[in-house]
Design a protein around this nucleic acid. Structure first.
Length: 295
DNA sequence: ATGACTTACAGGGTAAGA
């Protein structure tokens, strides 16, 4: 029985973030992953497609509703929901009206507030791209503070382009000048967490080397020389529901795969530790019962 | 080591990624 479908009284959600590196050119791999892993909610980054090029119908045929921010050639983010239509509540990060890059979208799905983000890479540094990264990060920190306090169950999921600590990289030697592990980048991430966000993977696997990205160079995938840069952050309302977290590394091993792998969490329907009355039954009209065969 | 790989856009070679 699938982990995320253990019965009506223990309904669970699997939520994933995946930088697919081009949704048009790798649609077959996205659909294969959706079919095999059946995530309930998916945050996608680097669509590299305009709105008109977004494969809405193919995803619909696979059972997923979607909201997205397209952009020609680069960036682009989307939120998918199985057997449901995400309700978009925000597109674009507040704080700079002149920023037109497609890097942020927010939607309500399954009782969660889901923020999907694609933080700027920032290379080369120093330089204007790194300045943009840090400025974007500051806007995220400001906005995240309001989300943290909102009382909603919130997840901030996406490609953060930050290696939080040296445990999150195979070896720092050839990355010391890279924007992904600059002290300024890491300090922003630390300040974000300090608002009370839980880094899901690290909370459940405090000492393990877990990677979500392996670059195309020098056989880094073959040698498992990876980075952990895709993160799922839970606010204090949602964190008690965290059950498990991991990375679907098999996707990275596919021929022609994205350089990232889908990174996921499973959330319980009700808080695991908190002593409180059961939440009222969820409205599950559109949610089909377990129906897939294990791939 | 302005590197290596890979994509989008275009229809060659540049920009961008991380």
């Amino acid at each position: 029985m699938p982990l995320d479908r253990v019965g009506p009284t223990m309904a669970r959600l699997k939520l994933a973030t995946y930088n697919g590196n081009g949704i048009k050119s790798r649609l077959d791999k996205l659909l294969e992953w959706l079919g095999r892993e059946s995530p309930d909610i998916v945050c996608l980054q680097e669509l590299k497609a305009e709105d008109t090029g977004f494969p809405r119908k193919a995803l619909r045929d696979a059972g997923y509703g979607a909201v997205f921010v397209g952009q020609k050639s680069w960036n682009g983010v989307a939120i998918l929901a199985k057997d449901a239509d995400p309700i978009e509540v925000r597109r674009g990060l507040p704080g700079d009206d002149k920023d037109t890059q497609g890097r942020y979208i927010e939607a309500a799905v399954d009782g969660l507030l889901v923020a999907c983000l694609y933080l700027p890479n920032g290379n080369p540094q120093p330089g204007p791209k790194f300045d943009y990264k840090l400025a974007w990060f500051e806007r995220l920190i400001r906005h995240a503070a309001t989300l943290q306090k909102s009382g909603h169950a919130v997840v901030l999921a996406g490609d953060y382009n930050v290696i939080p600590t040296d445990l999150d990289i195979y070896n720092t030697r050839s990355w010391l000048k890279d924007a992904l592990l600059q002290p300024a980048s890491r300090e922003c991430y630390r300040r974000l967490l300090a608002q009370g966000w839980t880094d899901s993977i690290r909370a459940l696997h405090p000492d393990e080397r877990i990677y979500t990205f392996w670059d195309y160079f020098r056989q880094h995938w073959e040698h498992n020389s990876g980075l952990r840069i895709d993160h799922l952050l839970l606010n204090e309302t949602l964190a008690p529901r965290l059950v498990s977290a991991g990375v679907d590394t098999w996707v990275r091993g596919r021929p022609g795969a994205s350089d990232h792998a889908p990174t996921w969490i499973v959330l319980d329907d009700a808080p695991r530790k908190a002593v409180r009355k059961r939440a009222p039954a969820r409205k599950v009209a559109k949610r089909a019962p377990a129906r897939r065969a294990k791939a």
